[in-house]
């Protein structure tokens, strides 16, 4: 019904946090008179790796939003979600968001954590091979 709104909320929160962190990082680098690209390019920082998570969340949510429009669950006019018109449908929608929506957000985050772990192991392996 509107389960994709939970991943959208997570993606929004992470995007905002990353933008603030990047802004602060740039501020610190300019105060130290250091080129931030020189510091960031050799090792991908955690901050840049959050791009993977937001890409998965925004990309998936976009396609799911299309599916919801297809099924007539999302409309371009107020209240935008058809389930908001009746209290019964609203409670059903909230239940779906709490179960499926949170499940989606958790699964995508877990997969991203797995990607991070694999990436870290590969980086360590490469470093040890070079040494």
């Amino acid at each position: 019904m509107a389960c994709f709104l939970v991943p959208v909320a997570e993606a929004t929160a992470i995007t905002i946090i990353r933008k603030i962190a990047e802004h602060n990082q740039q501020k610190n680098h300019s105060a130290l008179k250091v080129n931030p690209e020189e510091i960031l390019s050799p090792n991908k920082t955690f901050l840049s790796e959050t791009h993977w998570l937001t890409n998965l969340l925004w990309g998936g949510s976009a396609l799911l939003a299309f599916e919801h429009v297809w099924h007539g669950e999302v409309t371009p006019w107020f209240p935008f979600l058809t389930a908001m018109r009746e209290p019964d449908a609203t409670s059903e929608m909230l239940h779906e968001m709490a179960t499926n929506g949170i499940g989606m957000a958790v699964l995508v985050t877990l997969v991203w954590m797995g990607m991070l772990a694999v990436n870290r192991i590969r980086q360590k392996k490469n470093i040890s091979e070079v040494q």
Partner: peptide, 21 residues
């Protein structure tokens, strides 16, 4: 092409949860 990869993998994971439900 990575744009498409992110979109399809993200949607696949989300629909997988729907499928389990």
């Amino acid at each position: 092409i990575s744009t498409l990869c992110w979109m399809f993998w993200g949607a696949s994971l989300m629909w997988l949860v729907d499928a389990f439900a």
